[in-house]
Design a protein around this nucleic acid. Structure first.
Length: 494
RNA sequence: GGAGAGAUGGCCGAGUGGUCGAAGGCGCACGCCUGGAAAGUGUGUAGGCGGGGAACCGUCUCGAGGGUUCGAAUCCCUCUCUCUCCGCCA
């Protein structure tokens, strides 16, 4: 979310930068017009409040001196000027909500080095801060070669038995999978390996967060209010409260109609009553009477919100959190995409990294976090490339994003396995997360937040299966995972 | 699920309609004292918004949001969270 004062001071820069993002038509002039109205009402309201407060204080003094006559006189004076205050307050609230609503749907601005583009075809391969294709190739595992035609993960011998989509469909429908036996263990091993790597070697604090969160947390990281349809909601309606308030509103409504002159016809009363019913059904459906929980689409949400509504000391930064959690996504906009196999699921495990930094260090932290994610694939011997996302392909809250794309020989293509983003103070503003710079009497500043997968466990499982498959349908276990597999060097052999 | 109690500054804690953004203590910062330190002592110590070049001024915030009142930390309503007892439960 943006600071309207910043937009006012940098209107041209804002317009230029915001126009780089896809599907955004907002202009600084629209926002500043709302802000002008907001400031105008604040000035008028403050003046009225100042007068009221001064006179009220005098009333208190007069009463303390038992000067009842003077008190009455002052009270009459306040009553006259007071008319404006309630409407002024309501107006201020309304215009502030309007400004907030307008600001909260504007995506973050891309950094200058982010390439301009419409979709994933305009992403640019990235070789590191000072890297080249050659230096990157030396660091990264080579593409494997096969003496046979490599299969997709769900066709490989070991997976045919233990990766069960049919039974998952019976339990939960499409886009779910049941893993069994050594495949299930392999997935667990991958998750443990990755989390251990980040906590023991990369300095991340292991966190076990809630998987159900409130609206506020999702607003903080930017999934709400704009991306409801990507989330699963778990709500419990309070029907008693709904019913009580509905009945009360209904009574008031009837009373109004009883007072009407002449009395409205029965059809009119019925029509109006139906309209009301519909409104209240909508309220119920919108979750107004529910305890609203959302299933996290990524552990970025709980991990980043760990610092919400707090003022940290600069010395505490950077904070680095990592978690291994299930993630839940409705995949509403992906009908028909990746329907075979377990590439795109409603539920999947992921190891997530989150860093909380100062404004000065977030760009360096971004490169560091990318390296942490890359280490996972390097240790597992998986070939990959890094893409810098173009403006059209970046997420809502990001200023710059790197995607790690792992090589899937069965699909003969690279597929996203990790996404590492720097968000600047965008999320921090939404969740009021600040730090106090060290030194004397410094005002609090917003922290910078970063998040990255390190990496998606389900997709990593696919990559291990496809890259280490053998002609007989067995799969070799990468050395780094063997300790987590009880020393096994392969699974699915005869 | 039932019954009850509560939420005040970085922390503890006083305050039940008037000069209270808030006593007192702890902590922290700076100074005095000291050869140096401790002890002692003095001063200062929230955030947002608006106005102003600035000093500063105004306004809002005592869990959150509404309301009553000339005036609310204090009264009323809703919500969130915490604690105690009972019940249920992995």
């Amino acid at each position: 979310m943006f600071d309207i004062k910043w937009i006012r001071a940098n209107a041209e820069a804002f317009d230029a930068a915001v126009s780089r993002r896809k599907n955004v038509s907002v202009r600084s002039s629209d926002l500043l017009a709302i802000d002008d109205r907001r400031r105008e009402i604040i000035v008028r309201l403050n003046e009225a409040q100042e007068k009221r407060n001064a006179l009220s204080k005098q009333i208190g003094q007069a009463k303390a001196q038992k000067d009842e006559a003077k008190a009455q006189e002052l009270m009459a004076e306040v009553a006259r000027l007071k008319d404006f205050i309630p409407t002024g307050e309501a107006e201020e609230r309304a215009v502030e909500a309007e400004l907030r609503a307008a600001l909260s749907v504007i995506p973050n601005l891309a950094l200058d080095d982010v390439p301009q583009g419409d979709d994933e075809n305009d992403n640019v391969e990235y070789f590191g801060a000072n890297g080249t294709a050659e230096t990157a190739a030396r660091q990264r595992p080579a593409k494997p070669s096969f003496a046979f035609a490599p299969k997709e993960h769900y066709e490989i011998g070991v997976a045919e038995k233990d990766m069960d989509f049919e039974v998952a469909a019976k339990l939960s429908g499409s886009r779910f999978v049941v893993l069994k036996g050594q495949i299930a263990r392999l997935e667990r091993a991958i998750g443990q390996f990755m989390l251990d790597l980040h906590t023991t070697e990369h300095g991340y604090l292991e966190v076990q967060p809630p998987l159900l969160v409130r609206d506020d947390a999702l607003f903080g990281t930017g999934q709400l209010p704009k991306f409801k349809e990507d989330l699963f909601r778990a709500s419990i309606n309070d029907l008693d409260r709904f019913w009580n308030e509905y009945q009360r509103a209904r009574e008031e409504d009837l009373e109004v109609m009883r007072q009407m002159e002449p009395k409205p016809a029965g059809e009119i009363i019925n029509a109006r009553s139906l309209t009301r019913q519909r409104e209240w059904m909508q309220k119920l459906n919108d979750g107004e009477f529910a305890t609203n929980y959302w299933l996290i689409p990524t552990a970025e949400v709980p991990l980043t919100n760990l610092v919400r509504e707090s003022i940290l000391a600069e010395e505490e930064l950077p904070l680095r959190f990592a978690a291994l959690t299930p993630c839940f996504r409705s995949e509403a906009g992906s009908a028909g995409r990746d329907t075979r196999g377990m590439l795109r699921q409603h539920q999947f495990d992921k190891v997530e990294m989150v860093s909380i930094t100062t404004a000065e260090t977030s760009i360096d932290e971004h490169e560091r976090m990318l390296a942490c994610a890359e280490t996972v694939l390097q240790r597992l011997g998986l070939h990959y490339r890094v893409m810098m996302l173009c403006t059209g392909d970046m997420g809502f809250g990001a200023r710059k994003t790197y995607d790690l794309e792992v090589w899937l020989p069965g699909q003969d293509t690279y597929r996203e396995i990790s996404s590492v983003s720097v968000c600047g103070d965008f999320q921090a503003r939404r969740m009021e997360a600040r730090y106090r710079p060290s030194g004397e009497k410094q005002a609090p500043r917003y922290v910078h937040t970063l998040n990255g997968s390190g990496t998606a466990v389900g997709r990593c499982l696919i990559a291990v299966l496809e890259n280490y498959q053998q002609e007989d349908g067995s799969v070799l276990i990468p050395e780094a995972l063997q300790p987590y597999m009880g020393g096994l060097t392969s699974i699915g052999g005869k």
